[in-house]
Nucleic acid binder design. Sequence first.
DNA 1: AGCAACTTAGCGAGCGTTCAGTAAATCATC
DNA 2: GATGATTTACTGAACGCTCGCTAAGTTGCT
Lengths: 216, 216
Amino acid sequence: MAEQPIAASSDPEAELTPILRAALEEFVEHGYDGTSVRTIAARVGVTVPALYYHHENKQALLAELLDRAMAVVVRHTAEAEAAAGPVPRDRMAAMVRAIVGHMTNHQGLAFLDAETRALTPDNRKRYVAQRDQIEDLMRSCLRDGLADGSFSTPWVGDCTRAILSMLQGIASWYREDGPDSREEIAEHHVQLALALAGAVRPPAPTPTAARRTRRR
Amino acid sequence: MAEQPIAASSDPEAELTPILRAALEEFVEHGYDGTSVRTIAARVGVTVPALYYHHENKQALLAELLDRAMAVVVRHTAEAEAAAGPVPRDRMAAMVRAIVGHMTNHQGLAFLDAETRALTPDNRKRYVAQRDQIEDLMRSCLRDGLADGSFSTPWVGDCTRAILSMLQGIASWYREDGPDSREEIAEHHVQLALALAGAVRPPAPTPTAARRTRRR
DNA sequence: AGCAACTTAGCGAGCGTTCAGTAAATCATC
DNA sequence: GATGATTTACTGAACGCTCGCTAAGTTGCT
């Protein structure tokens, strides 16, 4: 009877059960196929069958972790965009901040993205659908910016993938004790993403939405 | 006696022996830990000990593949930059073209980058050293461009990583039968990289080096 | 005869998974 | 408020398989 989440906050890594947390750490460290259920159990301090009491099998551990990770980042990204108003530049900035926050605050879950190859076809399908949602949000924002003249990239697809690859990359180099804070990294990447989009003017103080993003 | 490279061209994937080629394909498809030496042997059409006659062990297969991959991309990138003259914008464009060419022409080897986690510490050290070389080339180019005013990014480190993440990402989505040719993708990413660097003027026809890169 | 390039056969270890049993908590009943 | 039934959360032991790897033997070319 120890299989409760340690915290009930809204932090998706904090509210993992001990088993899921141990599985996450092992998967991040050694990869899905490089991890044995025995090492997960040992990390939790239980025997192997205890894992199978709470989860169907090893694959279900990975699927659940990835489901949670994707659900959180999709929700945060969509909410951030919705709260940012109608201006494409602001929406893009908000989404980038949300995604960078995910990469730095939930680095383990974010890094797990590299393990999606190990998903069974059914589980992979759900993952891809969630990932496509984020890609669609970004692509639509780019298109809207091109339509109103605030962005100028001629290659929406390449630009979308470039932004998301750049952001996903953060999960593989970010260190909590690095020189820049999460917020600094987020702001840098807002500007880098806007550069990729070919944003035409620095803060774009249009009459409808002045005083929003602030440039350093 | 079938363990010769199929072709002796300068294409690093074509000049792989059948065993290394099979190992590459399996590693790309299932990951290092998800691949067994038996499936590699079966793919070549030999028995398992034949693998061990030509290679020390499974780890040596991965190490050799990654060594070749990194040696080639480092060499091509350095040569491309050297041949591009002194102008940072031209050097950056040349390096991006070289790296994109690597990602699209040797997608398997490029994708193997994701398996570096499975390297033993010694082998990983050699890999990291090679990867750092590319990062240093890119960073130096950025710095030179900032010094002469042709680039303007305030964050050299983040910008370097962003460019390389963006380019590495190509290996995970590029398809030979996709809508854009390798050359088109390369030119798009040259412009995207220059945008990340904050390149100040489109083709920058300075008096010393006009008539070089051509904008679409 | 000798070497290169294999094959046959198998070793011990570790893999994911399951089954049967059990201590403790929870609940229903008197 | 003690008692028996049920449920929860596990443990011990082991199953069948696959893993990386190797010793010893075989084949065919020079």
